[in-house]
Design a protein around this nucleic acid. Structure first.
Lengths: 171, 171
DNA sequence: CCATGTGTTGACGTTTACGTTATGCTTAGT
DNA sequence: ACTAAGCATAACGTAAACGTCAACACATGG
């Protein structure tokens, strides 16, 4: 329902340098990722220039997140993203229902995508809980440190007769 | 209060191979970290063998956590741990109050330690929230994927006449 | 039309964080 | 006492993820 017709599926292509500025990764990195098969620009100019589309851009940030937030190697990122083409296919499917995939194949892809996404979710939750535990640990230490400092101040105040505000400096 | 006297401050020293087995890092890694100044064994045998104590052990796991959970480089780990000697000093202080640090210096160290620990906490919280955001994103996608699959099943049931439970297997 | 910027494909260099011998000494079990 | 483990130092190797030229091709604004 409500099938909008957006003029003519406006292309909007970016050159590699523009992508670099927009996403914060270097052009070298983009070429390297392509070399690994991680990010294939969806278009090329007739002269051989790489031309990226919006989904390519979001893929760039996704790769970086998987690298930075989960510490995945590019090989692992590739594995995760392999089954995730589904996700893109799915968006395409829900926005444009033109693509002519047989429904059986489409369901297969969707199921794969659901599995992959769930695995990623599980991994995220695992990482979250591990970091959370570490955080709690450090929070407890923070409390202990402050207690120790308070104790020190207290001792200084009550203890030896020197009890003015300034502790004695020593070489 | 309740000052226990634990026999004679039982040494408990571990050789590098034992540390490796206990912590899960290789001996090479331990030597490498030492080379970088990250982990200096608190003792040496007369023949030159590295001998580690309990706090060294916990330092090993702390280093690994900073590496794995926060993705810090060893240089960054070193920076974090630099001011954290305080933390160790503090534990020593609270368990044995023998060490002869002037209170002024002790307070200084404690304050540094509090700052460092708080910075680490902030970093942990930041990382946590970034991963959490990513997680939420993927959770939303999980929902969308399942909706799409349900939609597919629904279409299949209502649409063409093939509607039996089993999707067609294809080579 | 020409200068300048941006792109392309190599190819080699670099950093980090270790792995892997090699060689010799020490410690430990029998 | 002797042999097998384990440790020490030293040096070279390696995998990942890019950085950094080099040399040449477009393309684009004045």
């Amino acid at each position: 329902m409500t099938s909008k017709r957006p003029a003519e599926t406006e292309p909007v292509l970016w050159r590699i340098g523009e992508v670099a500025k927009l996403t914060g990764v270097t052009t070298r990195t983009l070429r390297y990722w392509e070399e690994l098969g991680l990010l294939r620009p969806s278009n090329h100019s007739q002269s051989g220039e790489r031309l990226y589309v919006a989904t390519d851009l979001s893929r760039v940030t996704r790769i970086r997140k998987l690298q930075d937030l989960l510490g995945l190697s590019l090989a692992e990122v590739q594995a995760v993203l392999a089954t995730e083409a589904v996700d893109v296919l799915d968006r395409v499917h829900s926005e444009i229902d033109a693509v002519d995939l047989p429904p059986s194949r489409r369901k297969e892809l969707l199921d794969d995508g659901i599995v992959a996404n769930d695995e990623l979710l599980a991994r995220l939750d695992d990482t979250l809980s591990r970091i959370q535990a570490f955080r709690d640990e450090r929070a407890a230490i923070a409390v202990r440190l402050r207690e120790s400092r308070a104790q020190l101040d207290e001792d200084a105040g009550a203890g030896t007769g020197v009890g003015n505000g300034r502790p004695v400096a020593r070489a």
